[in-house]
């Protein structure tokens, strides 16, 4: 048969439609992401809570009495109109201290997340690109990952001394290997693709290939991982401060407030509950945000989301019913139960 090479019907429409789609896609990618983010209820909730906590951190200390004002007469007051979260054993306003603590916790968490992301990205990319560097860097990160995060952080703090900046250094050392691993494995996938080979053949420099061509492909997993580091840093900082190895008093951090609270747990529950609730909500918010970002940015994770499949099914059933009504065909929806897997 010889009829198959030139046919007016096939190729023409395909090409135009395809290229139009492509242009359309790049143009609307950002606004599409924002729309999807807003539609993703959990991520949106997480983001909103985080914004509120951030607002408390920024404006709270301006609106409340100084968190350092010691007032002997006001010691251990339960929550009241004047002190909504009560006062501590020095008569300091707990709300003010929680707000100031939010500053410290968010600052430490965010700063660590950024440092870890930058360092982890650099390490991961070079490891993915250079086999010798890979051997050395990955063995080191294996070794560092053998230390439980909190314990290594305590040890580093014990050596460096109790200071907020040292907390950030300690946490960065602890969490960088985890980020580096993720970046490395994402970059390895890209490195094997043909376009990198082509670039090498064209004589592009290594720095150029790594930063211009490979780096953009690891951004999504990097953002997701940085979000989780943010949460882990806040938890670890709180634990460190709770153990007396983190942010030094009198500067309030949620962790060292809990330490004060624990010593007075019989008399002043508010000293434990309020900072505790703030830690909990913040971590929950960041985790929701992180899970949501992973859903939105990482296509391999999307199919595993709970609830999504069911919703799709519901929507599709509804659509099917409509079509069936239109065509007035006798559609018999099969509803069989007893299927478990």
């Amino acid at each position: 048969m010889t009829h198959s090479t030139t046919t007016p019907h096939s190729a023409r429409p395909d090409i135009t439609v395809g290229s139009l789609n492509r242009i359309d896609k790049t143009r609307s990618r950002r606004s599409k992401f924002l729309r999807r983010f807003a539609a993703h209820k959990l991520a949106f909730t997480g983001g909103s809570i985080l914004v509120i906590v951030t607002l408390v951190a920024i404006f709270g200390p301006m609106l409340t009495p100084s968190p350092f004002d010691v007032a002997g007469a006001n010691r251990l007051q339960p929550p009241s109109l004047e002190h909504p979260f009560g006062t501590d054993n020095y008569g300091r306003d707990v709300l003010a201290r929680v707000a100031e603590g939010a500053r410290v916790s968010l600052f430490v968490g965010a700063f660590t997340a950024v440092c870890t992301a930058v360092l982890g990205c650099a390490v991961g990319l070079y490891a993915a690109y250079n086999r010798v560097a890979d051997m050395i860097l990955m063995r080191i990160s294996d070794g560092l990952m053998a230390f439980p995060a909190i314990l290594l952080a305590i040890a580093i703090m014990a050596a460096l001394g109790q200071q907020t900046s040292n907390v950030i250094i300690a946490l960065t050392i602890v969490f960088t290997p985890y980020v580096a691993r993720i970046v490395r494995s994402s970059a390895l996938v890209v490195r094997e693709q043909t376009f990198v080979e082509a670039l090498k053949a064209q004589g592009a420099s290594r720095t150029r290939i790594i930063w211009i061509n490979i780096a953009p492909n690891v951004v999504s997993p990097l953002i997701v991982q940085a979000t989780f580091v943010f949460a882990d840093s806040i938890i670890t900082e709180a634990a460190l401060s709770f153990l007396g190895a983190g942010v030094p008093p009198p500067a309030p951090s949620w962790g060292n407030m809990l330490l004060d609270g624990k010593n007075l747990i019989y008399t002043a529950w508010w000293m434990t509950v309020f900072p505790g609730v703030f830690i909990m909500s913040t971590i929950l918010a960041i985790n929701l945000l992180g899970d949501g970002l992973r859903d939105l940015l990482d296509p391999t994770y999307r199919s595993k989301t709970s609830g999504r499949k069911r919703k799709a099914r519901k929507a599709a059933r509804a659509a099917a019913r409509q079509t069936a009504a239109h065509q007035s065909t006798a559609s018999r929806p099969t509803t069989r139960e007893g299927e478990s897997s």
Binding site: M1, T2, S4, T5, H9, S10
Partner: peptide, 27 residues
């Protein structure tokens, strides 16, 4: 060897009429 031109349309966008028409030399 001759090949059949075009690609199989996806099931989400089934064409009206004969499904092979877009690739068919006799359409």
């Amino acid at each position: 060897l001759p090949i059949i031109p075009g690609a199989v349309p996806t099931l989400t966008q089934v064409p009206d009429g004969c499904r092979f028409a877009a690739r068919c030399p006799f359409a």
